[in-house]
Write a protein that binds this DNA or RNA. Structure first.
Lengths: 139, 139
DNA sequence: TATTGTTATACTCTATAACTATA
DNA sequence: TATAGTTATAGAGTATAACAATA
């Protein structure tokens, strides 16, 4: 009967909650053969026609080196299209197939998010999200 | 001026907050040449003399395949010792050097946790940790 | 000079399969 | 049969360095 000294560490709870939620989302997205990061990028492109990789990288706080192959995969699957903006940057938009696909992605994500919130008392949901955002934006 | 459609997704906020906190902790632990998972295991061993790998794995919800090399590294550094319990399991305990080392680890972790909580209004800290634990234990 | 996108590479955490030795 | 520990391998996210092409 070992003792758990991590019980009351918020950082540890944060990590465990995040890992659990991510694993669950990954399982749900697997039916679309899509990874969580890819889903995130698709949703952002859907909301921003002709967004560039550098804008995506800034918004999602990713390394540009990781965005390049991700975008290539989405393009290779015919979900997005590139259109030159100037000589070095390209505007990314959903393809026709991509629009239908993103609808399915959003359905999975929304269900996932609803499932998360359902585990919390309704009265605390707003404060919880606010706290998370305070943690990540102040770092 | 792109639009961020992820702003209000609690799952996304959870992930970003967790990644930010983990990266910060990793930076702080780097001065000890220690990774966050190793620090976590060390702290649990410190609180449980002669704990076994299988008990660690259960408490931390890790795969036993990942615990084996981690424990080997800690042993190779002289931080922990193994003592046979029966023919197949070993009790893990801190070495003399390990005790001093864990004191430094705890200092770093405690400062890190305090830093996290400091970003939240004091009145919300309890509810926040409770919410995190609800998310991870109900999954 | 600075920015955009790219390639190569590596680290950390997590996951599965298969195996041994022991209970 | 089930459990403890191990090895090998793979996937996913993140990170840095270096580079070509363009602004």
């Amino acid at each position: 009967m070992p003792v758990d000294p991590l019980k009351d560490y918020p950082g540890y709870a944060l990590r465990r909650a995040s890992v659990a939620a991510m694993a669950e989302l990954a399982r749900k997205l697997a039916v679309l053969d899509l990874r969580p990061t890819e889903a995130t990028v698709l949703v952002v492109i859907a909301a921003n026609v002709k967004i560039t990789q550098s804008e995506l990288v800034k918004m999602l706080d990713m390394a540009s080196a990781n965005m390049a192959p991700l975008v290539s995969r989405l393009e290779a699957r015919g979900l997005i299209e590139r259109e030159p903006v100037d000589g070095r940057s390209q505007g990314l938009s959903l393809s026709t197939a991509g629009h239908g696909f993103v609808a399915r992605v959003k359905k999975i994500i929304d269900a996932h998010e609803d499932g998360l919130l359902a585990k919390l008392p309704a009265s605390q949901r707003g404060a919880f999200v606010a706290a998370l955002r305070a943690l990540w934006s102040e770092s």
